[in-house]
């Protein structure tokens, strides 16, 4: 077995769990709820009654707890896909940089500074 593979046979990448069939199955209800947030009426319905809305989509207890706790890493563990979670994050007033800070345990300023530390602009133009 290669060093980069766990006993599951899956490739291990630090801090990264590729969204595969296992996660897609585990996260289906949570992602279905988040997909519904493309529509403003549904976002409003969630805000008005979070528990009722989660029940309507049959979220698992683990998924409900993660949403209640605004715990992004727990939502991912529960099978949430970040493209769908981003729609929930919008309701909560969080953008992808807020999400990054929450997941890495950094302050928002520190997370932004870490990105800016890569700062580079390289331009090429044909003669």
């Amino acid at each position: 077995m290669n060093a980069g593979h766990a006993e599951s046979g899956k490739r291990q990448i630090f801090g990264t769990e590729p969204f595969d069939g296992d996660l897609a199955m585990r996260g289906y209800a949570l992602n279905a709820m988040c997909y519904s947030f493309n529509t403003k009426d549904n976002r409003d319905a969630f805000v008005a009654d979070e528990e009722g809305y989660m029940a309507k989509f049959n979220l698992t207890d683990e998924q409900k707890a993660a949403v209640r706790g605004r715990d992004v890493l727990a939502m991912l563990d529960a099978g949430g896909n970040v493209y769908y979670l981003a729609k929930l994050a919008g309701i909560l007033g969080l953008n992808v940089q807020d999400l990054g800070a929450l997941q890495t345990g950094m302050t928002l300023d520190a997370f932004k500074a870490a990105l800016l530390s890569h700062g580079e602009t390289t331009r090429r133009a044909a003669a």
Partner: peptide, 13 residues
Amino acid sequence: HQLEGKRAGFINK
């Protein structure tokens, strides 16, 4: 770029 997980914010120039 990477949006999710503990490696969120990953850049590889």
